[in-house]
């Protein structure tokens, strides 16, 4: 019954000791090669986008591609404060508004999901009751529904309920993206908590609620951090829900970025700059809880 978890670093140190003796050099070289190969693949496009965001249009479309160019921050200026470089580009930038919209939608989506999802996940993890597995699977199955299948009927419903083009409506619709994922993963976290701890607390006179609040919730904090980051990313990156169910008041950043495909040409530089800016909040969030992410997923997403 006891699931014994050894501290990771201890294991690793011993592994390293072990390898030092034998073939550390070879594995070291292989690792460097492997990692450089993967990270070249993973990061080159990012660097390319970054470079694109610093180029003027002529450099972006140059053939062969240019690696040496005079960097310009015009693109960033144009999308944040607006700038009159060519006549038709000087339209007041909507980008900051889209950014804010997405920020509101994504954060509240995650908060609502957390509220609704944590208790559901806890009860699914901790209590045994009839239809438990069915209910759990039902939650997961919401994630299967292809977006296009719900979107048109949902649009009609939203109009009737006056949820069309409202933040509340979108936050509700976004639950489809975040809630099932959050419940499913958090349930794993809660199951990981040794029952003995909770039992001891119950014997001490805590109610289940007390146990949940005082014992279980603090224990799964790293898990929650990990799941919040991933849910936030999913919500941040969605575009079709907001496109159909929202209008000018609630347009998200994804549509803002697609908007750089104009009729006369594509503003690649600005699009790249917008992409870079778009990633920043996610990156910040990920950095803040970075130490929790791996630990969180280690702790409970899966049972070893």
């Amino acid at each position: 019954m006891f699931r014994i978890r050894k501290i990771f670093d201890e294991t690793m140190e011993q592994d390293v000791d072990e390898m030092k003796k034998s073939k550390i050099k070879l594995t070291g070289i292989l690792r460097v090669i492997g990692l450089s190969a993967y990270f070249t693949f993973a990061l080159t496009p990012i660097i390319w986008i970054l470079m694109m965001s610093l180029k003027n249009h002529n450099d972006v479309i140059a053939t062969p591609p240019k690696f040496i160019f005079t960097p310009t921050i015009e693109n960033y200026k144009a999308i944040t404060v607006g700038m009159k470089s060519y006549a038709f580009e000087s339209v007041r930038p909507d980008f900051p508004k889209y950014f804010l919209n997405t920020f509101i939608i994504a954060s509240f989506t995650v908060i609502v999901s957390l509220f609704l999802g944590t208790i559901a996940a806890y009860s699914l993890a901790r209590f045994s009751f009839r239809f438990k597995e069915d209910i759990a699977f039902t939650f997961l199955s919401f994630r299967f529904a292809p977006e296009l299948m719900v979107i048109l009927p949902l649009y009609v419903v939203f109009q009737k309920m006056h949820l069309y083009d409202t933040f509340v409506g979108l936050i509700l619709a976004y639950q489809l993206i975040t809630l099932p994922f959050l419940i499913w993963v958090l349930r794993g976290f809660f199951e990981e908590i040794p029952r003995e701890i909770e039992q001891a607390a119950r014997v001490d006179g805590y109610t289940w609620w007390g146990v949940f609040r005082r014992i279980s919730l603090p224990l799964v904090k790293p898990g929650i951090a990990a799941v919040v980051v991933l849910s936030f990313i999913f919500a941040w990156n969605n575009f079709i829900f907001a496109m159909i169910l929202g209008s000018e008041r609630t347009q998200p950043i994804t549509l803002g970025i697609l908007g750089f495909i104009g009729y006369e040409r594509v503003l690649w530089g600005q699009m790249a700059a917008a992409t870079i800016i778009c990633v920043i909040p996610e990156l910040l969030l990920a950095f803040f809880v970075q130490k929790y992410i791996i630990r969180g997923l280690t702790f409970g997403a899966v049972k070893g």
């Binding site: 208790i119 559901a120 209910i135 939650f139 529904a145 299948m149 719900v150 949902l154």
Partner: peptide, 19 residues
């Protein structure tokens, strides 16, 4: 447990009626 799962379930089913 049903009560605890209910809010989440309701929120999702509300959206999934269109399905």
């Amino acid at each position: 447990p049903y009560l605890l799962s209910l809010p989440a379930l309701l929120a999702l089913i509300g959206i999934l009626y269109p399905f």
